[in-house]
Simulated assay, not measured.
Amino acid sequence: MRKLRHDEIPRLAPDELAAVPRHPVVAVLDDIRSLYNVGAIFRTSDAARIEKLYLTGITPTPEHPGMHKTALGAQDLVPWERHRDPLPLVDRLRAAGYTLAVLEITDTPSHIADLDASHFPLCLIVGNEVHGVRDALVARADVALEIPQYGAKQSLNVAVAYGVAVFGLVERCRSLQGLPPHPDEPARLPDRMDA
């Protein structure tokens, strides 16, 4: 075993990325206050090759130069939109066929492994670092995804929790489609999970 050099790591070039289907997951980042968390989420979203990020509430946008320290260019690779109010946005996403999933601790938790093909395409909603996902979004959700935690603390940093969840969702999506979890094979994703 040896560590690969940067030029040996198989990755898509930015111009190739536009021609490759994205995984059928979008995310709503609502009221996330930290530039660093949002930048890290952009970088993770590029690595997971999800469809789009929606920045709502007070969530900062990539125009802020401070975000570039953690996004490291991913802000130019991941499609994103700005919406002040997340409620009409998630209603439109549901009407477009997305399952609404909050990443939150609730009284009816689900796990990513429990999702089936009918849950995709999926909209993952993450919330504020202190208050979590706002109640009005929890009330609209179809499912609440919870990350099992085995220590004393009750939550993870939002960018860390997002990373765990989005990679779990991509792995689950690929598994349901019979695609390998590793991107070595350039398999084509269907436009919809039921295709």
Rank of each mutant, 00 (worst) to 15 (best):
Leu4Tyr: 13
Leu189Gly: 05
Glu16Met: 15
Cys173Trp: 13
Met1Trp: 13
Asp184Glu: 11
Gln149Pro: 12
Glu146Gln: 14
Gly127Ala: 01
Ile147Trp: 06
Arg82Thr: 02
Pro186Lys: 13
Leu169Thr: 00
Glu8Gln: 14
Arg188Met: 13
Ala195Asn: 09
Leu145Gln: 03
Leu55Asp: 02
Leu17His: 10
Gly168Pro: 10
Leu4Asp: 10
Val143Met: 10
Arg22Leu: 03
Arg43Val: 07
Leu115Tyr: 06
Leu72Gly: 09
Tyr36Ala: 07
Arg43Leu: 03
Val164Gln: 05
Gln75Thr: 09
Lys69Ile: 11
Pro65Met: 12
Gly163Leu: 00
Val78Ala: 04
Ala161Phe: 02
Ala19Met: 09
Pro10Leu: 12
Cys123Ala: 10
Val26Ala: 04
Arg43Met: 03
Val20Pro: 06
Ala95Pro: 11
Phe42Glu: 03
Asp7Trp: 15
Ala159Tyr: 01
Ser155Asp: 06
Arg84Pro: 09
Gln154Trp: 12
His23Leu: 11
Pro10Thr: 05
Arg84Gln: 13
Ala159His: 04
Glu129Ala: 08
Ala159Cys: 03
His64Glu: 15
Pro183Asn: 02
Pro180Met: 09
Asp135Leu: 07
Leu53Arg: 07
Asp191Trp: 11
Ala74Met: 00
Pro60Ser: 11
Phe167Glu: 08
Glu129Arg: 01
Arg49Leu: 08
His119Trp: 09
Tyr150Lys: 10
Thr70Trp: 07
Ala195Phe: 11
Asp142Pro: 06
